[in-house]
């Protein structure tokens, strides 16, 4: 497995982690929308979105690199 393949796997796991941070933030904040957990939850979802966009860009950039 090349660094490219491991990086794709890593980004996928990082996206899942960011989503879990988002869910944690919403559950911890409850109805308090202006709390720190809510802000962190929003940052988690934003991070997941950024990683999805980055992942698509990276796959394009590393197109000619092998997965093995």
């Amino acid at each position: 497995m090349s660094l490219k393949a491991f990086h794709v796997f890593f980004v996928a796991i990082a996206i899942l982690m960011c989503i879990s941070l988002g869910i944690w933030g919403i559950r911890s904040a409850g109805s308090d929308v202006s709390s720190l957990p809510m802000a962190m939850g929003a940052a988690g979802f934003a991070g997941a979105l950024i990683l999805v966009i980055y992942g698509a860009w990276m796959l394009k950039k590393l197109k000619r690199f092998s997965y093995v």
């Binding site: 660094l3 990086h7 890593f10 990082a14 911890s28 962190m40 988690g44 990683l51 950039k61 590393l62």
Partner: peptide
């Protein structure tokens, strides 16, 4: 664990490490 640990600092560190993986791949590429 969030009762006694500082989640914002850990989240910041997570961002550092994810970004460092990106720069590592860019270095290799």
């Amino acid at each position: 664990g969030d009762n006694i640990l500082q989640v914002p600092l850990a989240a910041l560190n997570t961002a550092f490490l994810i970004t460092s993986s990106v720069t590592m791949v860019l270095a290799w590429a």
